[in-house]
Each structure stands twice: as structure tokens, then as C-alpha cells.
Simulated assay, not measured.
Amino acid sequence: MNIKDSKSPLFDALVDFFKEFVQKNEGKEFGENITPSEIYSAITAHNNFQHLQWGQQEDAEEFFGYLLDGLNEEFTESVKNLSEAEIKSLLNSILNDETRNNIKASIKKFNSPELESQENKVTTTSSTTVGEDGWQEVNNSKKIVSSSRREVEIKPSPINHLFGGQFRSTLKVPNEKHTQSITLDPFLQIQLDISDDEITSLTEAFKRISTIEELQYKANGGKDVIATKQTFIDRLPNVLIIHLKRFSFTNKTSRYGRIEKIRKVIEYKEKLSVPVECLSPAIRSTPAEYKLIGVVYHHGLNSDGGHYTVDVLRNGSGNKWIRIDDTNITSLELEHVLPNPGSEESKTAYILMYQRISA
């Protein structure tokens, strides 16, 4: 593999790694161990991963984020550089009319001259209130509210199709021309703050997303005012990646402070129903049901060391799971994947992966 000669080096490295995995594991329960030396050599030549050093401790969530971002860039660049002949050949190879039309519409977005200029576009709208449920576009007096809206345009790609969601944040500033500012931001992973002692479950952590924040804000006239900000999930992905923020800055043990690990167990279940409290009103009537497919654990007490293991749901095996710990692979049941609430351990769930089972 020569990553320098590839137009999509990360994707090609993963494909080669997968091919090697299939070849060495075909017809076997677990198969042979694979040393990831080739894929390591490939990805460390990529700009996103030049900081990696063999044997050096790295953060799993940060690594995965770099990988998704890099793959997304490769897919979008590949589509942008397709020739007319390649586009025609691609569309002709698709028999399903609906799929072909969707792909055609997506490709058109890459050729739109307005796409780049609209990446952080601002539009002014008026919103009519609909109730008193804490949603910041809701006004108790049911008046017309003037709003400015900022939205980041997202180019379609397989990565965004699988992992892409969107946050909707509303900032309300007293006595401004636009009394509220709405920002729509894309995400590929959701980070959940679990530092509050009252948060002991995944559901509780999700609900905190929409907690109203009070912020010091300098209004147009230069006057300091108290603004309020509230964030909701406005679009949910097909595969939901949840990062539990285990490492928090504290000065409890030192006057200078340090990064410490939050070791408490966060309760999560096989099935996840995303709480309606953290969803925007536009999607609250749509079921948001997910099934657990993977858990990444961090073993250790500190942020600068430790060890990672992963539990994975086996594809096509009913509800059978495997645990991967370097070269050790073992079978396990779901009950050994789910946490034991109330305990505190050095091994804790760090990344949760859920697949959507309802639209």
C-alpha cells in the first residue's frame, strides 16, 4: 500500500485492513490475530494522524473523530472531482429509480457555486410561538419573534449519512433587534457531560443537553446583559456515537489543578430511547429508538495512561457479543456488557455505539 499515490488514503487503508481481516478469519470462530502495522504506517502519513507515535498513549474518542473527519473529506473530494463520464456511468449502474434520483440530487450539491458561500449563511426569519415547553423559540405571550438564523451547509457523504446529526441552539438576548439567534451545527459524535454528581444514567446525561444556560453578553449598545442559551438535537443519525466525558479538570487535590478521571458507572441499556426533552419540537413526534452495538472501555485512573478494550455485537449472530482485549477475544452475553450501577471501577464505558432501529 502506497498512501502517497492514493486519492483516498484513509479509505484505501481501511479497505485493505478489512480484506486482511476477512482472509484470516473466514470459516473460523475468532480467527487469527492481526497486527495493525500496515494500517498504522498508512494513516500516520495522513495529515490528521502525523502526531501518532508507535506505543504512545492516544485518546480513543479523539482518534475516532479524526478518522471520521478524514474519511468525510476524502468522500466529498472524490465526488467533487468526478468527471461527467464517471457520473453518467455511476447513475447508469443503479437500477432503483429512487436511489438514482437521490444520488443525482446529492451530486448536484457539489457543483453548486453557492454552496461554499452559504456554508455559514445568515437569514432573518419570524417565528410564531407554539407552547411553553422550554423551547427558546417559544414565547409565553405567543407573539411573533424576530430571529437570525445561522446554518452550516453539509455536503452529503456516506459518513454524514451514517453518523451525521445536527444540533439546534437558540440564544436569546434582551432588547436586541433580533431577540433570538438560532444556530444549526452538524455533529458526527455527541459528547455528554457526566461531571454532575446527580447524573448516573445515559438518559439523565442526555436531558442535560437542553438545560438553559445564562451567559454574560454585551448587547449592541455596549450594555452588559444576561442572555440565555438552549440547545436541542434537531436531527438524529442512523448510527449514534456517544462520548462520555470521563476526564475533567479539577483543583480539588492541587492548587494548580489537574485532569482527573470520572470513575462512576453510568447506567445504559441495550435499547435507547432518546429523551424527548433534548429533542427539538420538530422531531419529538418521531420515534428515536436505538440498539447497542458496541462499547469502548477505558481501563485506568488517569488521562495520560491506561488501556482500551471493546465489546462488539456480532453481526448476524442474534444477540451474541465478543470482547476484544488486544490479542484476547472472548464470547460473552449481553448481561456482561451492561453496567453495574452504583459501583466505581477503573474500567468504565467511554464510547457507546447505538444503531437506529426506528425511523
Results as ranks from 00 to 15, higher is better:
234 D>N: 15
221 G>C: 03
220 N>Q: 13
266 I>R: 09
12 D>F: 03
203 T>I: 11
340 N>Y: 08
230 Q>H: 06
144 I>E: 13
235 R>Y: 02
153 E>Y: 09
189 Q>T: 13
243 H>F: 11
51 H>Q: 12
271 K>L: 10
348 T>V: 12
324 I>E: 03
29 E>K: 13
219 A>M: 04
206 F>N: 05
274 V>Y: 02
309 T>N: 09
3 I>T: 12
34 I>G: 09
59 D>I: 04
210 S>D: 12
59 D>M: 08
282 A>G: 00
53 Q>N: 08
53 Q>M: 10
313 L>N: 06
204 E>N: 05
1 M>D: 09
90 L>D: 05
103 I>V: 15
346 S>Y: 04
197 D>S: 14
183 T>G: 05
44 T>P: 00
142 K>S: 13
15 V>E: 15
170 T>I: 15
267 E>G: 00
77 E>L: 10
137 E>L: 11
326 D>H: 01
96 N>G: 01
81 N>K: 14
228 T>R: 07
216 Q>I: 14
40 Y>I: 10
8 S>N: 08
22 V>Q: 11
158 P>W: 11
110 F>R: 02
39 I>Q: 09
246 R>P: 12
171 L>F: 10
336 H>P: 00
79 V>M: 08
92 N>K: 14
210 S>N: 08
319 N>W: 00
152 V>R: 14
280 S>Y: 06
274 V>H: 06
330 T>C: 01
68 L>S: 06
101 N>G: 05
1 M>L: 07
127 S>H: 14
87 I>L: 01
195 S>M: 04
214 E>I: 09
181 S>C: 04
100 R>S: 09
86 E>G: 07
119 E>S: 13
35 T>M: 07
230 Q>N: 03
118 Q>C: 08
193 D>H: 04
173 V>G: 04
32 E>T: 03
265 V>K: 06
160 N>A: 07
51 H>S: 15
109 K>Y: 10
89 S>T: 06
153 E>R: 12
93 S>E: 05
149 R>E: 15
274 V>E: 03
147 S>G: 04
330 T>D: 08
53 Q>C: 07
150 R>G: 05
52 L>T: 05
245 K>R: 13
331 S>Q: 10
118 Q>T: 04
298 H>G: 03
240 L>N: 05
287 P>C: 00
90 L>G: 04
268 Y>D: 06
156 P>H: 10
307 H>I: 08
60 A>V: 06
284 R>A: 01
201 S>Y: 06
50 Q>K: 15
195 S>I: 10
21 F>T: 11
48 N>V: 02
111 N>T: 01
327 T>V: 12
206 F>E: 07
200 T>K: 11
342 G>V: 07
311 D>L: 00
245 K>G: 05
141 S>Q: 14
46 H>V: 15
355 Q>D: 14
177 K>E: 15
345 E>M: 08
184 L>H: 15
265 V>P: 00
44 T>E: 03
169 S>R: 06
72 N>Q: 13
235 R>M: 03
190 I>N: 06
51 H>G: 09
58 E>A: 12
186 P>W: 03
297 Y>L: 11
57 Q>L: 01
117 S>K: 15
205 A>V: 13
252 K>V: 05
33 N>K: 04
205 A>D: 07
228 T>N: 01
190 I>K: 09
157 S>G: 04
293 I>Q: 01
62 E>L: 01
136 Q>L: 11
103 I>Q: 02
